[in-house]
């Protein structure tokens, strides 16, 4: 719990000094809440896949980080994994979030494991293997975590392409046994008002266009 406390700028400087052009982008975002508007910071770093492990090593040199979670996006032709850390916990109001994002092209989907550096990462890595189809090289325990053994190969629930969840797997619970022939109760004759917003079928909140657009 000892050691110098770095400002977020110093953290970013250390990274840029160490990795140079391997860091594609680094930014610090600040948020202030409450009456006193005390700030807290999130450092966003985009970096090359090869630098992921050295970057985490660098984090460990600063202070052993807490790995919160590994999140991810499907960007179309690539998968972006976001490793969310926090460092300097235990120091009053001096904890920062550090997110290290790596972009992995879909035709070359692998990422080195970090579980030898941070044992607690196994959970997240196993999860990314099953949900994004990312191969984590060197993972000590590559079994499925959440999915059952006989889950169909090649279906990755968080992907937004054809390997995502197919429509045939979706089940509408609300429709179960609901009577469809119930007549609408009569309304006292007044002016029937216009539907605002021009939505054709508002009873169906899952708009089709939106769903297709996101794929």
């Amino acid at each position: 719990m000892t050691g110098t406390i770095l400002t977020p700028e110093e953290v970013v400087d250390r990274f840029s000094a160490k990795f140079g052009t391997g860091i594609q982008e680094a930014s610090i975002r600040e948020k202030r809440e409450g009456k006193k508007k005390i700030p807290h910071y999130t450092i966003w770093i985009e970096l090359d896949r090869e630098l992921l492990r050295p970057a985490i090593q660098a984090l460990i040199e600063i202070r052993y980080p807490h790995l919160s979670v590994i999140a991810g996006n499907d960007l179309g032709d690539s998968i972006r994994l976001v490793y969310i850390f926090s460092i300097q916990y235990g120091e009053i109001r001096s904890e920062y979030m550090v997110t290290l994002a790596v972009t992995l092209p879909k035709d070359d989907l692998f990422v080195p494991t970090i579980s030898d550096l941070i044992p607690g990462a196994v959970f997240g890595e196993r999860e990314k293997q099953e949900f994004f189809g990312v191969t984590v090289t060197g993972i000590p325990d590559g079994r499925r975590l959440f999915l059952p053994r006989d889950f169909p190969e090649g279906v990755y629930p968080w992907r937004r392409d054809e390997t995502g969840i197919p429509d045939s797997m979706i089940r509408d619970l609300w429709a179960s046994k609901r009577p469809t022939d119930r007549p609408a109760p009569p309304v006292e004759e007044k002016e029937a008002c216009e539907i605002e917003g021009g939505e054709e079928k508002p009873a169906e909140p899952r708009g089709k266009g939106e769903e297709e657009g996101s794929q």
Binding site: M1, K31, R32, E33, G34, K35, K36, K37, I38, H40, H66, S86, Q88, Y89, G90, E91, I92, R93, S94, E95, Y96, M97
Partner: peptide
């Protein structure tokens, strides 16, 4: 024994006050 509490380390909402 890990001294870790977001309310002190990373004050959100009104915890900064």
């Amino acid at each position: 024994g890990v001294n870790m509490d977001l309310r002190q380390d990373y004050p959100y909402a009104a915890y900064g006050d």
